[in-house]
């Protein structure tokens, strides 16, 4: 084999017979990248374990010498943390349910019929993805003021679930397209109606895609800050967790540890869910991406 002059190409190319030295270099690079990826998160953990009087320290130790769970207890008992989580859960779960109901049927129409306005509709759905979030805030806020929906769960649930429709429809349409039409046609010959063929055959077969869409809508609403900040404003009793955490972080000098503890508690279930479902999430994303 000829010697590789281009060091860069040597390093990045994949061959079965990689030399031990090259393998070591690759591992070192990946370890370095992993440290960069994980260190800020470990810092949050470390700050959350600091006792109140040692909050501001220049120590870089990952587990502080006098580690304590005091911050976690403070957040759970003295702050509204549980309320924020409850509010987020209530809003997010209902959003995801409504979003799936609204988008699963529309996506079926897009997948199986060539009705007038179909192309325009699909392009419109795609175009909505380009609207900056902040752009819709102004009219939504003023409309919400006029409809007395500011500071209510209802306003947020409706806004989130409609906002989730375009992306969900694209993903579901892509999935329905892969289901052979023969299945429904067989059912239609057997006397089923179009609608019952959809509910009995297509929906059960699409469970994975529906789960992806549910998860997407859930994550979208769960992590949203902007709309919640605009529509909930000062209604602290229905604040979602991003608003609460921002308030804690704002009191950096006094509440850094509490912010960190709250972050860890929000993060762990989300990260677990994400890692567990990442394979499906990604297949959904690429499906939507490649199709779109």
């Amino acid at each position: 084999m000829k010697t590789e002059k281009n060091w860069f190409a040597w390093f990045f190319s994949a061959k079965r017979g990689d030399s031990p030295f090259k393998r070591l270099l690759i591992h070192l690079t990946l370890i370095f990248a992993s440290i960069i990826a994980v260190y800020p998160v470990l810092r949050v953990l470390s700050v959350s374990l600091r006792p109140g009087d040692r909050l501001l320290s220049t120590s870089l130790a990952l587990i502080p010498a006098d580690a304590t769970l005091q911050n976690y207890i403070t957040v759970l008992v003295e702050k509204d943390f549980l309320l924020w989580i409850w509010n987020s859960l209530a809003i997010t779960i209902s959003t995801a349910i409504i979003g799936v109901i609204l988008s699963s049927t529309s996506a079926y129409a897009f997948s199986r019929w060539k009705f007038p306005g179909r192309t325009v509709g699909l392009i419109f759905l795609l175009a909505t993805q380009m609207i900056p979030g902040a752009m819709l805030m102004v009219p939504l806020f003023i409309l919400a003021v006029k409809l007395h929906l500011v500071g209510t769960y209802r306003g947020l649930v409706i806004a989130y679930s409609v906002g989730a429709i375009p992306f969900s429809v694209w993903i579901l349409k892509g999935y329905y397209d892969t289901i052979p039409r023969d299945l429904e046609e067989a059912a239609l010959i057997d006397g089923a109606t179009r609608i019952s063929a959809f509910y009995r055959i297509i929906l059960p077969l699409s469970t994975p895609a529906l789960a992806i869409v549910f998860l997407f809508n859930f994550m979208q609403a769960w992590n949203d800050f902007l709309l919640a900040r605009v529509l909930l404003a000062n209604a602290t009793e229905i604040w979602t967790w991003p608003l609460g955490l921002q308030q804690l972080q704002g009191q950096f000098q006094t509440a850094w540890g509490q912010f960190a503890a709250a972050s860890i508690m929000v993060m762990i279930p989300v990260v677990a869910l994400f890692l567990y479902s990442s394979k499906y999430l990604i297949s959904g994303l690429t499906l939507g991406g490649v199709k779109g």
Partner: peptide, 14 residues
């Protein structure tokens, strides 16, 4: 994958 997995608001505030 971790930076993508944690909620963006938390990552940014941290």
């Amino acid at each position: 994958i971790l930076p993508w997995a944690i909620p963006q608001v938390i990552a940014v505030l941290a």
